[in-house]
Design a protein around this nucleic acid. Structure first.
Lengths: 122, 122
DNA sequence: ATTATAAATAGTAATCATTCCTATTTAAGT
DNA sequence: ACTTAAATAGGAATGATTACTATTTATAAT
């Protein structure tokens, strides 16, 4: 019981209505606009469970986890100057096929993260 | 003055004599075998400066930074069961050429990290 | 060799993202 | 309405990393 909380719904909406790859703190700030007393722990717990349920993916930039409502595996680019994280596009199967050393392994997560200066910051 | 410390040399040797991608804590443990009173801060500082000087690269698995004495860009695979991190091989230029969305960007770091079960743990 | 000095270290305290804990609240089934 | 399992709020704890400072060390000039 008590499975569909308003908090989870709000967090899910935030993730699905942005392409900005927010951190937990940023999701928390946005969620507070709707639920002023939502707690940070709730944000973390729901971001985790959304990721586990396949409704989001996460990746770490520096020390900070970022969340993406788009679950299709794709590479990301982060700008070391402005901090923005952008989506890249890529045929991930083709990408995997370029690699050797995976014999006998079972791959179930793929993180591709490029860093540098974005077109606005070059 | 005081630029070539024994500590830095030991840490550099540890990185260059393993393919195990140790964390800072693991480097610290190994360095202690040679310099028992070396401090963890010194390990972090030297790992950082080695990375900045292009003598090592680092990447984050979970929450933990791992260090690699091999500075050539290459993908890594970590096993979610045993925790091992393995090197993969890949033509990184070809990998980059698969991507779109980088127009106008200046790429200066490339992290490719696959996760799953390694051949020993499958 | 001795000395002067800037850089590096050891040890410890502080930081900060994330996780854990618990009393309270909430949603769903009866 | 009542029961109960799941979720929350708020705050405390964790743990990797960084910052701080007094002390030590390596280099270069005397």
């Amino acid at each position: 019981m008590a499975r569909y909380s308003k908090q989870r719904e709000v967090i899910e909406n935030i993730l699905h209505s942005t392409t900005a790859h927010p951190s937990a703190a940023e999701v928390y700030a946005k969620a507070k606009e709707v639920i002023p007393n939502i707690s940070l722990g709730t944000v973390y717990r729901n971001l985790d469970s959304l990721s586990h349920d396949g409704e989001a993916q996460s990746f770490t930039v520096g020390d900070i986890a970022h969340f993406d409502g788009n679950i299709a595996p794709h590479p990301h680019f982060f700008c070391t100057k402005c901090g923005r994280v952008k989506d890249l596009e890529c045929d991930m199967d083709k990408l995997l096929s370029l690699m050797t050393g995976l014999d006998g392994c079972e791959v179930d997560s793929e993180t591709v993260l490029l860093g540098g200066l974005c077109s606005e910051c070059v």
